[in-house]
Design a protein around this nucleic acid. Structure first.
Lengths: 185, 185
DNA sequence: GCATGATGAGACAATAATGTCTCATATGGG
DNA sequence: CCCATATGAGACATTATTGTCTCATCATGC
């Protein structure tokens, strides 16, 4: 058994995700307290608030990329990539939320990486369209919006204890593809 | 023609919605500047930052209630209420976003009002289920999550200029009920 | 014109947040 | 045991934000 305990740096990052996704104006003192480390230790690892925020964004993007890559290693189609990615991303909903609701327009590198991730989703959506997954008459922009929105809905559902991550992923996928209407007779 | 110009107070509220939904840690100086009023004027109308945030939350809930009520005045069924509410709420997406992503747990009154609004949606969902709109085997909690998520997706789509509010409402409704899958042969 | 009320600009003080520093301690490897 | 490193606690200076105040200006209605 490896120790469950995180390093100071990771504790801080984890605590910051939790706090900042709930309240972007939380102070660094709150973050340090939540992480169970001294305020000075936080500054030893992150030179400034901006540095912390920026690191969080990079970590979030990195974790999401990694989760998607690992989940889709053996995917046989764009459809499968979308389905597996959704399942892999739902547990990272706080990371996703953090990036979307933070003013990272200032940082060119992060904005660019985030744009790339969004573009990748849109490309997958278009590939899945050619596979017959989506109605070709609906814009890929809209489908991408819905994909991201259902990602968030799944995360919310898991966070509130209503479903497991896998159940949420199944529900989100079903909602995306066939909707929630009663079965046609 | 009434003057298009808003009162100082309304200018501030509007600016605060725009800024705070993008960056919850925006300073009051930024809000005042965005509103085109002096910082002192902001404090004449709102005694403190908390007062402003609290007022924003109350206004947001109020506007959403009013929009729903007005849109659904002649609705004949729960299904219609949901459809019309969705269309009415999408243009108020910034209000909705503001409430969901702010730490208003501190204020009992606002938390209660927000909970009531959410409960009302869930009740409508359940009523619509008995009308045969939704698959009865899917939990109302999940349907409510998806409803809110699509509300947000519609707002995003409108904000980015991809669709009009009406188009977004139609897309969201279609996504909710029948999904985005290709038509079955 | 005059009074009234709202406003913008800016000075000001109080407060909160941030970033730096020191020192005592502990933890773990050698 | 000894040393190197990381840490917590807390003092401290700096900065940003917040909230108050005054005064000159402007618009509006009388």
């Amino acid at each position: 058994m490896q120790p469950v305990r995180l390093s100071s740096k990771d504790s801080i990052l984890e605590a910051a995700f939790v706090l900042f996704s709930r309240d972007a104006s939380a102070s660094l003192a709150e973050v340090a307290a939540q992480a169970g480390v001294g305020r000075a230790t936080l500054h030893r690892h992150f030179s400034s608030r901006d540095d912390l925020i920026r690191t969080l964004a990079l970590v979030a993007i990195d974790e999401m990329d990694e989760a998607v890559e690992s989940a889709c290693a053996n995917a046989q189609s764009a459809t499968e990539v979308l389905r597996l990615s959704l399942a892999a991303l739902i547990p990272l909903g706080d990371r996703h939320g953090f990036i979307t609701q933070h003013p990272i327009e200032n940082d060119a590198e992060i904005a660019e990486q985030f744009r790339q991730a969004d573009d990748a989703t849109r490309e997958m959506v278009e590939a899945a369209k050619t596979e017959g997954l989506f109605d070709a008459s609906v814009s890929s922009d809209w489908i991408t919006h819905v994909y991201n929105a259902l990602l968030y809905a799944g995360w919310e559902s898991v966070k509130q204890g209503e479903t497991t991550a896998q159940q949420a992923a199944d529900l989100a996928w079903r909602s995306l593809t066939t909707g929630l209407g009663a079965a046609k007779p």
